[in-house]
Design a binder for these strands. Sequence first.
DNA 1: TTGGTGATGTTT
DNA 2: AACATCACCAAA
Length: 195
Amino acid sequence: MGRNFFIRPTLNVARDLLGKYLVHETNKYRLVGKIVEVEAYLGERDPASHSYRGKTKRNEVMFRSGGYLYVYFTYGMHFCCNVVTGREGIGRAVLLRAVEPIEGKQWIRARRAKSPTEVDLCNGPAKLCQAFGIDRRDNGTDLCGKIIWIGATASDGKKFAIGSSTRIGISNGRKHRWRFFIQGNPFVSRGKPAK
DNA sequence: TTGGTGATGTTT
DNA sequence: AACATCACCAAA
């Protein structure tokens, strides 16, 4: 997708990311996953967002213009990745929470050796990053480049129903239903929304 | 199937 | 001290 796809209201980008492909390509392999679950984080108006209190060294990438990858380290062992949205200067992004493996499954399985079944390979934000080999080195990657990008697919559009719920694993901003997923898709994480 | 907890490091 | 998580174990 081109830059203009990302420089739009965050909630629209979040819903439109569903059904699209996340691609990670190197000279060794090409990994592709269909995005089935995301969460929107709306910056200064969202107490659950990393950018709620303004720009820091950690969240600097969130304040770039749309179309960059914000990767953060969490819980002492995991990485999660976000698609930055909107104009430069506002810290908003969409967390990628789950994808359905499409291509390069041998590499994905190798990285996710602990995963007992196909659906457990990428059904969580940290699992997804582990499966796709995304870590702190990928923070700030331009998604309009040739290494990690978002691809349009045939399943784009209105061929599936979009479900929504409150976001998972947060303590502030619980009231907002800013988690979106492809309804009925088995590769959506089974994490329950926080009450 | 559900719920509790340890692992582990960065940020506040 | 909390944290945008995961894997493992025990209980029912």
